[in-house]
């Protein structure tokens, strides 16, 4: 006996009074403003405090340009390396079972759990002049610590979990059935990866790369330990900001900082775009299909 459906008030799972809800929203907004928007605004205003000309002059400074170059080089080496490593590790961990699998999963997290300063120290202890390989390296005239290779090493170390961490849960969820199907159909290992696995992990992979890149360009702690702060030679952008700041060249420091902030904002935008793409694929994939039988 279903009569005309009476419009019943929808039952909200959260039944807090309006006042409480507004208060919570306001708290979140104030917090956000104080800790995120305000600092960003300060960076921008301080950067332009001595005028637009001074801003661009600070960016055109040779030392700044060299810091930009070093940061880009470091990211250009670290990101592809960790992309390769991350995909390989995630592939091995999710598609095969082998002894030591769990240990490998745990090891991938080490750079996240260890303080970046310690990550830097490790390389100094290994390759520094007093380090394990120090004497051998100086004999062969190879400089790692307080030089570009050290900075790249430290950055690779600090950023290596990003891609793998992003991919492992995704690939675990997708299982190995599609790969098996491709194998039975005669595909080679490379064909399986290229045509089946890679398209399935595309969005997760891009997301991991973007995060990895942001961290590679922004890393301070580990890089600071191994860099030696040689201006124009071993200074990355974050280190350069610190130096300028310590020398009381505030406008210049903030001008360089604004570059890094820009990178942060670009990362966020990229992340949004990827999430949008991912959602579109998802909705298309979960679209309800009627269970039409043979006469389709």
């Amino acid at each position: 006996m279903t009569g005309p459906s009476v419009a019943r008030p929808r039952v909200e799972p959260t039944a807090e009074p309006v006042l409480v809800r507004r208060l919570l929203t306001a708290t979140a907004l104030v917090f956000l403003a104080a800790f995120l928007v305000l600092p960003l605004a300060v960076v921008i205003t301080e950067a332009f405090s001595k005028g637009v000309l001074a801003y661009f002059a600070a960016l055109r400074d040779p030392d700044t340009l060299s810091a930009v170059r070093l940061t880009l080089i470091t990211a250009a080496i670290a990101v592809p390396l960790n992309l390769t490593f991350g995909v390989a590790a995630a592939w091995a961990i999710t598609k095969f079972s082998f002894p030591g699998r769990r240990i490998l999963v745990a090891l991938i997290d080490v750079p996240f759990t260890v303080s970046p300063v310690i990550s830097g120290m490790v390389f100094v202890l290994l390759f520094g002049s007093q380090g394990w390989f120090g004497p051998w390296l100086s004999e062969h005239d190879v400089k790692i610590v307080f030089a570009v290779p050290g900075i790249v090493l430290a950055t690779v170390f600090v950023t290596f979990p990003f891609v793998a961490r992003e991919l492992i849960p995704l690939m675990e969820e997708q299982g190995t059935e599609e790969e098996e199907a491709a194998l039975v159909l005669g595909a080679s290992g490379w064909q399986i990866f290229r045509r089946v696995t890679l398209p399935n992990i595309k969005w997760g992979l891009m997301y991991g790369v973007i995060l990895c890149n942001a961290r590679a360009m922004g890393e301070f702690g580990a890089v600071s330990v191994v860099s030696g702060h040689v201006r124009g030679l071993t200074n990355t952008l974050p280190l350069h900001v610190e130096i300028l700041y310590n020398e009381y060249r505030l406008a210049a420091a903030f001008a360089v900082a604004s570059l890094l902030s820009l990178l942060g904002i670009a990362t966020l935008v990229g992340k949004r775009i990827i999430e949008g793409g991912e959602r579109r694929t998802r909705t298309r994939m979960s679209a309800d299909a009627p269970d039409g039988a043979l006469a389709a």
């Binding site: 059935e177 599609e178 098996e180 199907a181 039975v184 595909a187 089946v196 398209p199 399935n200 994939m285």
Partner: peptide
């Protein structure tokens, strides 16, 4: 690869993309 078998998986394992 060389056995030339056709295999239909329980959950079909169609290539989703």
């Amino acid at each position: 690869r060389e056995r030339r078998v056709g295999f239909v998986f329980q959950h079909y394992a169609l290539f989703r993309h």
